[in-house]
């Protein structure tokens, strides 16, 4: 089989059917871009989990004078003994408790002042308004409940806070986005498959003279079907190149613009984007070739 002959046949076929080919290329590109985006969001969530779960802490806040209205702080501000008792209990909980650091009211006030220099509250309150706390680092951040049940309601403890809660909301949002991308991807993929089937059918019909003669003179099924399959696979290749372009464009958008707006997230690198591209190309071309093959079994009999 001579490559030049085959290539020229593909070119003729694709041009004959230009509008359909464009429709196939665009729908394949969109479905593959969404598939890639969905994979990348998953990577992003995973990398953020790794990064943030390492950093998040559980904070055990102690009562301050102003809290005497709330039931768990009825006896007023926490005493030094109470603070020390919590520390002793924490130390008993190794290895779940990896480490715990103390933050005094003064330190808390200083941190608040640094991160919110213009807050009008600053003028009104002093360090007394800030609770002292233990910042606890867990070996397994998902075991927050253990700390919560051990220290909530202990004398002098006002509340036990898990920073992970805030992250969970963000991850939930990202997972929602990922699911949405996946659902749209499935729909687009379905549309792309229908378009491929139809394009192959039209193509087979418009070339029935050639294929009739090919069968007559004894061309093998493979030889008769191959140009159609190659055509579909080639259109899918164009689609996956376009999809890769969209993903790489999306990457630079995220890094150039979004990363400046939301500084606290580290976005996954270009290498992750490049890593999904071969997968998209293979899946796209394979899918198109298989769809074409099964269409031909129906419309191009021996």
């Amino acid at each position: 089989m001579r490559a030049q002959f085959v290539l020229s046949e593909i070119g003729v076929g694709l041009r004959r059917n230009l509008t359909m080919t464009i429709a196939v290329v665009v729908s394949v590109a969109l479905s593959l871009a969404l598939a890639g985006a969905s994979l990348l969001v998953r990577d992003q969530v995973n990398s953020m989990k790794d990064y943030w779960y390492d950093k998040v802490e559980v904070s055990i806040y102690f009562c301050i004078k102003a809290d005497h209205n709330s039931p768990q702080c009825a006896s007023g501000a926490a005493t030094d003994d109470q603070v020390a008792q919590v520390k002793a209990d924490l130390d008993k909980m190794a290895p779940l408790v990896q480490s715990s650091t103390y933050e005094s009211s003064q330190e808390a006030y200083k941190h608040f002042k640094e991160s919110n220099p213009d807050n009008p509250l600053l003028a009104a309150v002093g360090p007394d308004a800030m609770p002292q706390s233990w910042r606890v680092k867990l070996s397994d951040p998902t075991k927050f409940d253990v700390i919560q049940s051990a220290f909530a309601g202990k004398p002098g403890v006002k509340s036990v806070d898990d920073q992970r809660k805030i992250l969970e909301n963000l991850f939930g949002l990202l997972r929602g986005l990922q699911t949405a991308a996946f659902v749209i991807m499935v729909l687009m993929l379905f549309v792309a498959l229908l378009l491929i089937v139809n394009t192959v059918r039209v193509s087979a019909f418009s070339r029935r003279r050639e294929t009739g003669i090919m069968r007559l003179v004894g061309a093998s099924n493979f030889y008769v079907q191959m140009p159609f399959i190659a055509e579909a696979a080639f259109a899918a290749l164009l689609g996956s190149v376009l999809a890769s372009g969209l993903l790489i464009g999306g990457h630079f958008f995220v890094h150039g613009w979004l990363a400046k707006k939301v500084g606290f997230i580290t976005f996954i690198g270009l290498s992750s984007v490049l890593a999904v591209i071969p997968l998209l190309v293979v899946v796209g071309m394979g899918m198109a070739a298989i769809a074409a093959f099964f269409t031909l079994r129906k419309y191009l009999k021996v």
Binding site: R215, L216, V217, G218, A219, S220, N221, V302
Partner: peptide, 9 residues
Amino acid sequence: NWKVPHMRR
């Protein structure tokens, strides 16, 4: 089926 082309040659 797959031997038919060869026969037609």
